[in-house]
Design a protein around this nucleic acid. Structure first.
Length: 731
DNA sequence: CGGTTGCACTTTTTT
DNA sequence: AGTGCAACCG
């Protein structure tokens, strides 16, 4: 097998340089994944490296799955000869086993591959017995779980959740954790009253979370870093184990992840990071692309390789994307090039509103598909916020355009699924307070606020776990006989199921089935509502999902770490709908980037009056990412008005469209030629002005709000008009 | 205790 | 517009 065949010079070099620190600056579409997989294959095949000695960190579980698949293809039958790693060396389950193209037997063959989070879970589960604050059977709290606990902490501290939003507190705590700042340090640095309040909540939250046997998303990383820092022998073990480290999307690593990398790299410094600062779009969750800019400083003597040939897009698409991104000041310099010189021109189209926008897109797709030029799966619609998908879903349904929605509500976030998962978590971790609160009266078992309060007191005094307290609750608990009976039953059920899980008499699938039957959950779901059928269907899907797992432990971990983008939506012939963030790393023959308007892209929350352009630049990178997903055709749209918060608002074209216009010449084609933007001059109107509209006749201005002007026309019609588009003339 | 009704808030992006 | 939460009544 020749691993180097099919690689260009830069890619080949990136594969060949196996020793020492290596930075691969990989532009969009430059064959990054290919290079990474070839690199791993080269290590294994030509350098005698055991797969288990390689750590490969990806940004999403899906990316890990893809890399695994490509590696499998590359190595072909080699897996049969591979020596299985230790028991710990099994492949991280990143997607339910059904979607993996490999049998469970081939797992040992593969490197540690996955997201930072999933890798941390694996390491922490292994090391839990050596760690004070990490129980072996920890559960993973997602954002909702964390917020529930924060709310509770705020209530206990009598902090009004209207004045200080639990969500805001949650994100402040998250930020602190991502900066490796604990509650004490946070309190010490707090001087503003809000910070002081948050410090109190933070401390209380942490205590509650620990008592409850849970780690939140950020803890997974933080506890791993703490462990590596504070336990030299553990650090040495893992440093010795991971002889080669690869990190993809390095521009999106945050402070904790950076620290972890530094702690995991051993004296040989065989670390290879791959990334592109132009595609850094996660600073809002703490990512810091200076990590990639500073790599050479962090690892002196690092080799730097640039992958600048783009294999994905045509020249016109690349030129347009380049025009946008080069408006950013804070960035590295590079020049992508493509051998595909010929191609369709980039189009910009203006529509009246989101309905027309979606209808136009649907019509265009249908036209191309029925002409036999394209298939549905060639198309992707990319937008800034999930809410934009509604209009497209409606239009596509109407036009019978098959589509798949990536992202949005996770399967595991559906209410019925979360209920059952909460039961499973509680029987797995009998102190999981958040799960207990969720299910204690679901389905209704006559335990309301008053009973719950009594039970909580009883439980707190007992010093036992929640499940133990449920079983033990007697007359002394002060509970009414009925409530006590019901709580006892709940506890007994959880005990029974836990036993079955622990001694292996029941698989996760069987446990879920028995649970559903025992609590009468199907009857509970089967109410009169029209959604009942969907819910029952989801419940069925959950049961069959659980059936793919051997242990509850594995199942719960996957449930917690899978994102909606990881969900297998099937490879049917469908148009893809997703956010720009989710689109990173993907490519499609035809891409529509929609909603290019001020307030949407750049998003309204972007601060652009402070003189700090960093947020605006991130929005621009987001557009760049979207544009560079296109292989052959790129169409960008914007609407004149849009429904926001249930109100129709007039919106301006995105300033990023002006970036594209410069030196455009005949660059653009489509229903809106580039010169649309030339007559942008806005005439000021005042209340009382007499105006004339080509469409509506003569009238008086009665209200002015920015560019939106309300005109009462003389024929009695009142219209809200955008002065940029309504062809108004001042009289 | 539990269901209903009305009101407030939402929307950035995700591991 | 849809959802989630608080207050109210049966």
């Amino acid at each position: 097998m020749n691993i180097f065949k099919n690689l260009n010079d830069a890619q080949r070099e990136a594969v060949e340089v196996t020793r020492g620190p290596l930075l691969i600056l990989a532009g969009a579409g430059s064959g990054k994944t290919k290079t990474l997989t070839h690199r791993i294959a080269n290590l294994v095949v030509n350098h005698g490296v055991q797969p288990g000695e390689i750590l490969a960190v990806t940004f999403t579980n899906k990316a890990a799955g893809e890399m695994r698949e490509r590696l499998g293809n590359l190595l072909g039958g080699a897996s049969e000869h591979a020596t299985p790693g230790s028991a710990q060396g099994r492949l991280a389950e990143v997607t339910p086993s059904r979607s993996s193209s490999f049998s469970a037997n081939s797992r040992n063959f593969f490197p540690y591959m996955g997201t930072f989070h999933s890798i941390c879970v694996r390491i922490l589960k292994i090391e839990a017995e050596n760690l004070e604050h990490v129980p072996k059977n920890f559960v993973i709290y997602d954002d909702d779980d964390r917020q529930a606990l924060i709310k509770r902490a705020m209530k206990e501290l009598s902090i009004d959740d209207k004045q200080l939003k639990p969500r805001a507190v949650s994100s402040m705590i998250s930020k602190a954790k991502n900066d490796c700042v604990g509650p004490d340090e946070f309190a010490a640095a707090a001087n503003h009253p809000i910070q002081k309040a948050v410090a109190q909540i933070y401390a209380r939250y942490e205590r509650a979370r620990r008592d409850t046997g849970a780690l939140d998303f950020d803890d997974l990383l933080l506890e791993t870093v703490r462990m590596l820092k504070n336990h030299p022998e553990i650090r040495q073990h893992w440093q010795g184990r991971f002889k080669y480290i690869l990190i993809d999307e390095y521009q999106d690593t945050n402070a904790v992840q950076y620290k972890m990398v530094k702690l995991l790299v051993n004296k040989d410094k065989n670390i290879c990071v791959v990334g592109d600062d132009w595609q850094s779009i996660y600073s809002w969750r703490g990512a810091d692309f200076t990590n990639i800019l500073n790599f050479e400083k962090d690892f002196p003597g690092a080799k730097v390789i640039k992958l600048e040939q783009n294999y994905r897009s045509t020249q016109p698409i690349l030129d347009a994307a380049h025009k946008v991104i080069t408006k950013n000041k804070n960035r590295t310099n590079k020049k992508l090039w493509t051998a595909i010189e010929q191609g369709e021109q980039v189009q910009i189209t203006r529509l009246n509103d989101e309905t027309e926008e979606a209808a136009m897109v649907a019509a265009r797709i249908l036209q191309r598909v029925s002409a036999g030029v394209r298939k549905f799966s060639d198309f992707a619609i990319l937008y800034r916020v999930n809410a934009q998908s509604y209009a497209f879903e409606r239009a596509f349904m109407q036009a019978h355009v098959p589509y798949r929605l990536v992202g949005g509500v996770r399967f595991y976030d559906r209410r019925e699924v979360k209920d059952i998962i909460a039961y499973l978590r509680l029987l797995y971790q009998p102190n999981d307070l958040v799960s207990f609160n969720r299910i204690v009266n679901m389905p209704v078992r006559g335990v309301g606020e008053a009973s719950l309060l009594k039970f909580n007191t009883y439980w707190a005094n007992s010093g036992a776990s929640i499940v133990e307290a449920l079983v033990a609750a007697d007359e002394d608990s002060g509970l009414t006989a009925r409530a006590r009976q019901n709580l006892n039953n709940l506890g007994n059920l959880l005990y029974l199921l836990r036993d079955k899980v622990e001694n292996g008499t029941a698989t996760p699938g069987e446990v879920v089935e028995e649970l559903v039957k025992e609590i009468g959950y199907k009857e509970h779901l089967n109410d009169d509502t029209p959604q009942a059928e969907d819910r029952l269907e989801n419940l069925g899907a959950l049961i069959s999902e659980a059936a793919h797992y051997e242990t509850l432990d594995e199942f719960l971990n996957d449930v917690a770490l899978l994102t909606s983008a990881d969900e297998d939506t099937g490879d049917k012939d469908k148009v893809t709908l997703m956010t720009l963030h989710v689109a990173k790393g993907l490519e499609f023959p035809v891409v529509f980037v929609v909603g290019l308007e001020e307030g949407l892209l750049p998003h309204a929350r972007v601060n652009d009056y402070t003189g700090d352009d960093s947020e605006l630049e991130e929005e621009r990178r987001l557009l760049y990412v979207g544009m560079t997903r296109a292989k052959e055709e790129l169409i960008m749209t914007h609407a004149s008005s849009r429904f926001v918060y249930g109100k129709r608002q007039y919106v301006l074209p995105s300033r990023f469209l002006e970036d594209l216009q410069e030196g455009a010449g005949n660059f653009f084609a489509g229903s809106t030629p580039a010169n649309t933007f030339e007559d942008f001059e806005i005439q000021p109107y005042e209340v009382g002005d007499r105006v004339k509209s080509m469409q509506f006749g003569v009238g008086s201005v009665v209200d002015v709000d920015g560019l939106a002007v309300r005109v009462n026309f003389d024929d009695g019609v009142s219209k809200l008009l955008n002065v940029q588009y309504a062809r108004l003339e001042k009289l």
